[in-house]
Amino acid sequence: MTYALAVEALAGVEAPPRAQAIRTLVAEMERVHSHLLWLGVTAHEAGFDTLFMYSWRDREAILDALEALCGNRVNYSVNVLGGVKFDVTDEIAASIHQAIDILHPRTVHYLNVVTHDAAFLQRTRGVGISTPQQAELLGLIGPPARAAGLRRDVRADAPYAAYAAYVPQVITTTAGDLAARCEVRVRELFESYRLIREVLNTLPQGELTTRMKRNVPPGEVIQRVEAPRGEALYFVRSKGGETPDRVKIRTPTLCNIASVAVMAVGAQLADVPLLLAGVDPCFSCNDRTVRVRQAGAGDQLLRWGQLRQYGIDFYAQKRTATHA
């Protein structure tokens, strides 16, 4: 969706209202699936496999609805440049409503578990606290930022697709610990259910796609989208023609993952997997290079061989240091 929105902005094309609403709908359904998946993984890391099994069982309900809509469980490929591929018929709308009706009472239960279960709270309450100042300094985004009390949500701050019409309530807590991260995500589920129902009930009529220009004019654009894990940022540059000159993606995990090293200071070793799960890491999203520019120090770029040599030297030096 981010890419489609970016290219549409470059081409000066806007998707029809029905397509925008369907994009919003699918984005929220994806958030539901992602948060339920995350809840399971976190529960598993906390040694609470029962919750893992329950939440993944319930997640199948939303996957069924997604499959009814677009025919696939994981890659929806709903978005095309200029609109969406799939229409929400009455039948599909009914199946989505049905999935939400199943999930809503289950989520009430999950909220109860993450806020009241004594064993779970022992693993999460007061663990890995990040204060609002820390969160600001580390540049946290998405649910971990909101759990620390920062009101950060692209859906509300810079509405895209149909979010200007369907305004989500930004859920924040102040505790900033793991328990808060759990609570924020589970409470966001209710917000997503409300939005999904609202979109389905007020889906505008009209076309699914608008005509997309074959050639995109030259220019640059930055598009942000609130993915389930936080802000996803795309930079797209066009030199004109059919293919982009450059597409740079910054995934939410890349912003959040470094905070684990700070939050883990003073925590038990056994808490580290849970702290890592707390930012909802996507490891494949981390296969990126970060170039740090220090003021005055200039920057340095290492090639693959140099980086490898740097790693070997670093560990060799560390070994001699520990043996000495």
Binding site: L37, M53, W56, R57, E60, R73, V74
Partner: peptide, 17 residues
């Protein structure tokens, strides 16, 4: 070197459904 998509479906295979 997977994108996690297959990994998630593999995990889904061991969950209750």
């Amino acid at each position: 070197g997977s994108c996690n998509g297959c990994d998630i479906e593999l995990l889904a295979t061991i969950t209750p459904r």
